[in-house]
Write a protein that binds this DNA or RNA. Structure first.
Lengths: 128, 128
DNA sequence: ATGTTAATGAGAACGATTTGCGAAAAGTCA
DNA sequence: TGACTTTTCGCAAATCGTTCTCATTAACAT
């Protein structure tokens, strides 16, 4: 008997929101969007479900600027983030070179990296 | 007449704590240590002073793993952090190569980096 | 010393998140 | 299907780090 891991309407609604999100929504946004599909979804369930999915490795939790975490579906390739300081837009990027350098540095200090966080905060140079 | 910017006992105590800190203390730690020198220091003053010093560029606020910010005196060279997942110890490091790559990546995406955050979370491989 | 202004302590307020709990829904097995 | 067990739910209250309010106090120029 495999553990059921109840597939409830609420969880489906939340997953649907994550699957169709083109951005990196906050818990608040996820709640609002999930309510469209199923108005009975509550804040607590959003947090509980996100925590569960994070534990399961299905979603990634990003604590950017210190104003509410932002979530995204895992499953794609690993990437880091560049945050537009003017718009809040989040751009994903990846650099194998940087990853390698990080591992080298950690090794020199006697560490194995478990995970890391690299965020660039910048602006488009104003044309003028 | 330069702006006064009151040099109070409390502020001196907090600055003293930061100057003599070998680690990256949390607000809570700073309060406890400051109270040794001046028991009248309050939580509110610690936060207010830290915010002020941060604005002044005197201290750096690090929001690591989401359990209270950790502070350090600015003034040294720029560096990033490696956090020991077992002990919470914070090790500083710097890589000119990584910095350069970051700038390159941002430039390719059409951005100028204002600041960045690079944190490595790892463990010493257990000898055995 | 005195008045003006900035800084303080105590505690209430805050925002994001988590939790306790009884009710409701899902899953299980005849 | 119905009876029973387990999971999940919504709500509201609780947490946690941090910030704010406000009456009081301490700095510092006069």
């Amino acid at each position: 008997m495999p553990k059921a891991c109840g597939v409830t309407r609420q969880r489906l609604a939340i997953l649907h929101v994550l699957r169709s999100a083109a951005d990196h929504p906050r818990a608040e946004d996820i709640l609002a969007r999930a309510k469209v599909q199923d108005p009975s979804v509550s804040q607590a369930t959003v947090y509980r479900t996100l925590a569960m999915l994070e534990r399961a490795g299905t979603v990634l939790k990003n604590e950017f600027d210190g104003a509410g975490a932002r979530y995204e579906l895992a499953g794609g390739a690993h990437h880091d983030h560049l945050i537009d300081l003017d718009t809040g837009e989040v751009i994903e990027f990846h650099s194998q070179k940087i990853e390698r350098l990080q591992a080298e540095i950690a090794a020199e200090l006697g560490y194995d990296i478990e995970w890391h966080r690299l965020e660039l905060y910048g602006r488009r140079p104003k044309a003028g």
